[in-house]
Design a protein around this nucleic acid. Structure first.
Length: 395
RNA sequence: GGAGGGGUGCCGGAGUGGACAAUCGGAGCAGACUGUAAAUCUGCCGCCUGAAGGCUACGUAGGUUCGAAUCCUACCCCCUCCA
């Protein structure tokens, strides 16, 4: 591996590496490294925010390193302290299983399955006794944990911190010991936990792991980190059209970041795009389409990406009717009004909503705005009904 | 063990007897515009009804009242402080 490779690996889309010089040395040694990646089975869906790190894992794998995926079946019961402390319901063993399946299916869209080892926390924690817990907890102090920004803030502002939450970093750290991790991967919000892992490894006589932190991706709303709870995410399991469309809806200000963190578009090209957008010599929409194309290709295929692009161009740019529309099952004899039928077909949430849309001029039949709640049976067969911008039906 | 604060619509958060289907902000949806499902502006934003109107809703269950999200009682849950 050349120095250039390492530089690229350690620079693009990376927030921080601890300790960089050690990591470089390890990489240059040629020894296959054990890369640790955890997964919380209470939340099995992977979105683009996670992909930033997963892509890095993949790049390491391509250099011959090995990923150890840890299913956090114990930590899931505690709940990640970085959340707003919504107590999570305990998951049953089956739920954990199902979620793990779902997760891995998405995980391996990015990460190389053949170079991955899957381990469950219960392999080591189910044997844990109170004596082990005491031994583990006695190694750290409350002050050390309050140093973590999240805990510290909550503590000083009088918000609650459950004792189990303090356990979370400890369990995660112990995972590193259990699997003898060389490098732990995570978002910048994982820094503290990863560092505890380093210390614990050192205390138990292992070589402390390197910490590889990737930046948190901003979500589709353009200002908060991508997360499921904020509903500003793009899931990798979503259909191509969905991914493509959501990418097209991100604010222009995110385009460059996304290109850098989520695609292999070369640095030089990205620099050019940045330049062109800045001096307005290019329509950001064009760059965004490229981005959307790259991402759909990654999770599906170039063909799927082309199709999604076509769909987008046709439906949203040219405002044409897509190939597939929802067929209204017009009652044969019964009278069925438009509002009732659209609701029945699931295009509108309730008749009240349908009526509102009607009043706002959002419903068209064959290109003509309709404002009366007409009887569907009076429409011509195979008329196209458009509801808002993206809902279509036909008779 | 003691003292106090609180549970409101998808979320945040007003409201402390009638004018409350509930201010406002966010999210969402729609229309206009556009360079895109960006930005911006305007409107809508519980359900049923053609409409007048009706129904369901402010932690849960009762009660007071002509009338309750607002008062009373019990219960459940959350939080803070002191010990």
């Amino acid at each position: 591996m050349t120095t250039l490779d390492i530089t690229r690996l350690l620079k693009r889309g990376v927030a921080e590496t601890i300790v960089e010089t050690e990591l470089v040395k390890l990489l240059e040694s040629g020894k296959p490294l054990r890369l640790k990646q955890g997964f919380d089975p209470s939340c099995p869906d992977i979105h683009l925010g996670h992909v930033v790190g997963l892509r890095k894992l993949r790049q390491f794998q391509d250099l011959g390193h090995r990923v150890i995926l840890i299913v956090g079946d114990w930590t899931a019961q505690i709940g990640d302290p970085s959340g707003q402390s919504a107590t999570r319901p305990m998951l049953s063993a089956e739920e954990v299983q199902t979620n793990a399946q779902t997760y891995m299916k998405q995980f391996f869209k990015v990460v190389d399955k053949d170079k991955t080892e899957v381990r469950w926390q219960s392999e080591w924690f189910s044997k844990f006794g109170l004596d082990d817990v005491i031994k583990l907890t006695s190694k750290f102090t409350v002050a050390q944990f309050l140093a973590r920004e999240d805990f510290g803030k909550r503590y000083s502002s009088g918000r609650p911190i459950a004792i189990t939450e303090l356990l979370y970093p400890l369990l995660q750290a112990y995972d590193s010991v259990a699997i003898e991790a060389d490098v732990e991967f995570g978002g910048t919000d994982q820094k503290f936990n990863c560092l505890v892992g380093r210390e614990l490894q050192q205390m138990t006589g292992q070589r402390p792991q390197q910490v590889f932190l990737v930046p948190l991706l901003i979500g589709t709303d353009g200002n908060q980190k991508m997360s499921k709870s904020l509903d500003n995410y793009i899931g990798v399991a979503e259909p191509p059209n969905g991914i493509y469309g959501k990418i097209m809806s991100i604010p222009d200000s995110l385009i460059i970041d996304y290109l850098e963190l989520l695609t292999d578009v070369p640095d030089e090209e990205i620099a050019e795009f940045r330049e062109q957008i800045a001096n307005q010599s290019i329509n950001p929409m064009v760059v965004k389409k490229r981005l959307a194309y790259e991402i759909v290709t990654q999770f599906y295929s170039a063909q799927a990406a082309r199709e999604a692009e076509d769909y987008f161009t046709k439906v949203f740019q040219m405002k044409e009717v897509p190939d597939e529309v929802v067929l209204l099952e017009t009652p044969v004899n019964l009278r069925g009004t438009l509002t009732a039928e659209l609701t029945k077909a699931g295009l509108t949430r309730s008749r009240s909503e349908a009526r509102r849309l009607l009043a706002q001029g959002a419903i068209e039949v064959d290109g003509k705005v309709v404002t009366d709640d007409v009887d569907v049976s009076t429409l011509k067969p195979s008329s196209i009904i458009k509801v808002g911008k993206r809902r279509f039906a036909s008779t």
